[in-house]
Deep mutational scan, measured.
Amino acid sequence: NRHQFAPGTFSGVLQCLVCDKTLLGKESLQCSNCNANVHKGCKDAAPACT
C-alpha cells in the first residue's frame, strides 16, 4: 500500500516514523490513510502504509 502524504497539520511535537527525530509542522508530511508522520526528506524511506 502507498502512503497519501499531505502537509502535516498538527499541534505539539511528534517524532518522524523513519528517523525518530522531532517533526516541526512546516517540514512534516502526514499520510491521510494511516496518519504516519514523516519529514519531507524521509518520505521515500517510510515503511508500507497500513
Rank of each mutant, 00 (worst) to 15 (best):
1 N>E: 07
1 N>R: 06
1 N>D: 11
1 N>H: 03
1 N>T: 13
2 R>C: 08
2 R>N: 15
2 R>E: 02
3 H>K: 04
3 H>L: 01
3 H>N: 08
4 Q>D: 07
4 Q>H: 14
4 Q>N: 15
5 F>G: 03
5 F>N: 04
5 F>I: 03
5 F>Q: 05
5 F>C: 01
5 F>T: 04
5 F>A: 00
5 F>L: 05
6 A>D: 09
6 A>S: 13
6 A>W: 02
6 A>L: 15
6 A>Q: 15
6 A>N: 15
7 P>H: 08
7 P>Q: 08
7 P>I: 05
7 P>F: 04
8 G>Q: 07
8 G>A: 12
8 G>L: 04
8 G>K: 06
9 T>A: 13
9 T>R: 04
9 T>Q: 08
10 F>E: 15
10 F>C: 11
11 S>L: 05
11 S>K: 12
11 S>Y: 03
11 S>E: 15
11 S>D: 15
11 S>F: 05
11 S>I: 06
12 G>Y: 02
12 G>N: 04
12 G>Q: 03
13 V>C: 15
13 V>N: 15
13 V>F: 05
14 L>Y: 11
14 L>C: 11
14 L>V: 14
15 Q>N: 15
15 Q>V: 10
15 Q>P: 06
15 Q>G: 06
15 Q>F: 05
15 Q>A: 09
15 Q>L: 06
16 C>R: 00
16 C>G: 01
16 C>F: 00
16 C>K: 01
16 C>Y: 00
16 C>M: 00
16 C>W: 00
17 L>H: 04
17 L>A: 12
17 L>K: 14
17 L>W: 07
17 L>G: 09
17 L>P: 07
17 L>C: 07
18 V>A: 08
18 V>W: 03
18 V>P: 01
18 V>Y: 04
18 V>Q: 06
18 V>H: 04
19 C>H: 00
19 C>Y: 00
19 C>R: 00
19 C>V: 00
20 D>N: 06
20 D>R: 06
20 D>E: 10
20 D>L: 08
20 D>P: 02
20 D>S: 08
20 D>C: 07
20 D>W: 04
21 K>W: 03
21 K>F: 05
21 K>T: 12
21 K>M: 08
22 T>P: 13
22 T>I: 04
22 T>Y: 07
23 L>Y: 11
23 L>W: 03
23 L>Q: 05
23 L>P: 04
23 L>K: 05
23 L>I: 06
24 L>V: 13
24 L>Q: 11
24 L>W: 02
24 L>I: 11
24 L>Y: 13
25 G>R: 04
25 G>H: 11
25 G>K: 04
25 G>D: 14
26 K>E: 14
26 K>C: 09
26 K>H: 03
26 K>G: 14
26 K>I: 13
26 K>A: 14
26 K>M: 10
27 E>M: 03
27 E>G: 02
27 E>V: 02
27 E>I: 00
27 E>L: 02
27 E>N: 02
27 E>T: 02
28 S>V: 08
28 S>L: 10
28 S>D: 15
28 S>K: 02
28 S>M: 13
28 S>E: 12
28 S>P: 03
29 L>P: 01
29 L>F: 10
29 L>R: 04
29 L>H: 04
30 Q>Y: 05
30 Q>E: 11
30 Q>S: 10
30 Q>W: 07
31 C>E: 02
31 C>K: 00
31 C>D: 07
31 C>S: 01
31 C>Y: 00
32 S>T: 11
32 S>Q: 10
32 S>F: 06
32 S>V: 09
33 N>I: 10
33 N>K: 10
33 N>Y: 11
33 N>A: 12
33 N>C: 05
33 N>V: 10
34 C>N: 00
34 C>P: 01
34 C>D: 00
34 C>L: 00
34 C>R: 00
34 C>Y: 01
34 C>H: 01
35 N>C: 08
35 N>P: 05
35 N>Q: 04
35 N>A: 09
36 A>K: 15
36 A>I: 13
36 A>G: 10
37 N>V: 07
37 N>W: 05
37 N>Q: 12
37 N>K: 06
37 N>H: 08
38 V>L: 10
38 V>F: 14
38 V>W: 03
38 V>I: 11
38 V>D: 00
39 H>S: 02
39 H>A: 02
40 K>N: 13
40 K>W: 07
40 K>M: 14
40 K>Y: 12
41 G>L: 12
41 G>R: 03
41 G>P: 11
41 G>I: 11
41 G>N: 10
42 C>V: 02
42 C>Q: 00
42 C>F: 00
43 K>F: 13
43 K>C: 12
43 K>M: 07
43 K>V: 11
44 D>L: 10
44 D>Y: 07
44 D>M: 08
44 D>C: 08
44 D>Q: 07
44 D>N: 11
44 D>S: 14
44 D>F: 06
45 A>P: 06
45 A>K: 09
45 A>S: 09
46 A>T: 12
46 A>G: 13
46 A>D: 06
47 P>Y: 08
47 P>I: 13
47 P>Q: 07
48 A>M: 08
48 A>E: 09
48 A>D: 13
48 A>S: 10
48 A>P: 15
49 C>W: 01
49 C>R: 04
49 C>L: 03
49 C>A: 06
49 C>V: 03
49 C>I: 04
49 C>E: 05
49 C>K: 07
50 T>S: 11
50 T>C: 06
50 T>Q: 13
